[in-house]
Design a binder for these strands. Structure first.
Lengths: 193, 193
DNA sequence: ATTGTAGGCCAACGCTCGTTGGCAATAGGC
DNA sequence: GCCTATTGCCAACGAGCGTTGGCCTACAAT
């Protein structure tokens, strides 16, 4: 017995996380993951049952958001931006993003994550609770868009941004979506009725 | 001869656009595309050579941005937001987004598109041309993030936003990234040197 | 020393995919 | 009416995938 089963399971999981993050679900093959973990592909099946179950284990991560209720109202944007830039650099978000665009189940799970983790927090600090989902959704567009461009698509100018620089630019946007009054709709496209 | 070759080629291209947009490159199979176009898979090869070439034909679309130099400086955000909401609903962006996250070549192409189409426009209206790439990149994060959440991930609160509502929320963000003065960096994380 | 078991590899199955070559049928030009 | 070329389908190949079952090997307990 070269390694303990625990060690091997961990090695497989680590390789799986890296491969899924780098290549997405379809292009990350069991054979490649096994090769990275220096093990036979059949062992992956023994330890995790199937590719789907292995992915479920690899994607079982909570990108937990900071406790927004504890921060002053006018610093929420900055806290969210800082968290985004400093804590989302790992594999976690890349795994979800690279898979969610293709796999309906993962997309559903992303919807759940944001509805469950961001929604309620925003609702607490919004005057009108009916506005909370829209505000949380808009914040999600900026958060996921930044992660997409910086960590997945690697747009050069977005990658080049220093941490503090990125935070300084993004903070007002989050602040706007979460705390600004509902913007007035301009009339020239609203139509007569 | 049931159809003219031109008709068949067009039918294949249409089916390919829809399948690539819905399923991404890997999961959209030649066989499924051929079935949608009511044709034998081998004909797809005859007309387009290979799956890669078919994709190239299907993805040969320019998501051209509006002429920003023609609009008043303080309406740029609104024009960009309106364009985003009104003109990016089709298959085009979905094809690119669903594929770019997995295929390095398409990601590279997205980088080119944004560098070539958004960069120069922004440079024209920015005081310091050195800041232009960063501003264009930040605008891209919000644009792609909105498209991702609304058209690909289909986050319910983002889908639910009415056109004018979405525009009213997004416009200030674009305005901020493109025309606001460079934000001051806070010192408490900048470090001594 | 024998035995039981847990960790590991090998070989292969069945499936789907992109891709290819050959053959049938139908259209239009002479 | 024949000839040619275009349109189309069928059958199959080869590769890569997830997955399975059997067999080997080294350790631990007896």
């Amino acid at each position: 017995m070269r390694r303990s089963s625990t060690e091997t399971k961990a090695a497989i999981l680590k390789a799986a996380r890296e491969r899924f993050a780098a290549d997405g679900y379809d292009r990350a093959t069991i054979r490649a993951i096994a090769a990275d973990a220096a093990i036979d592909p059949s062992m992956v099946m023994r330890y995790y049952g199937s590719k789907q179950l292995l992915f479920a284990a690899a994607a079982d991560i909570d990108l937990r958001l900071p406790d927004l209720s504890a921060v002053p109202r006018d610093e929420i944007g900055r806290v969210l931006a800082a968290h985004l830039v400093e804590r989302w650099e790992g594999d976690a978000l890349q795994i979800l993003l690279r898979t969610a665009v293709t796999d309906p189940d993962i997309a559903e799970r992303m919807r759940t994550v944001f509805a469950a983790q961001l929604g309620p927090r925003v609702a607490e600090l919004t005057g009108d609770p009916a506005e909370a989902p829209a505000r949380a959704g808009l914040a999600a567009t900026q958060a996921l868009g930044f992660a997409l461009c910086r960590y997945v698509l690697r747009l050069p100018p977005v990658v080049a941004l220093e941490r503090e620089e990125a935070i300084a630019w993004l903070a007002p946007t989050f602040q706007h979506y979460l705390t600004a009054p509902r913007p007035a709709l301009t009339e020239h496209l609203a139509g007569p009725g």
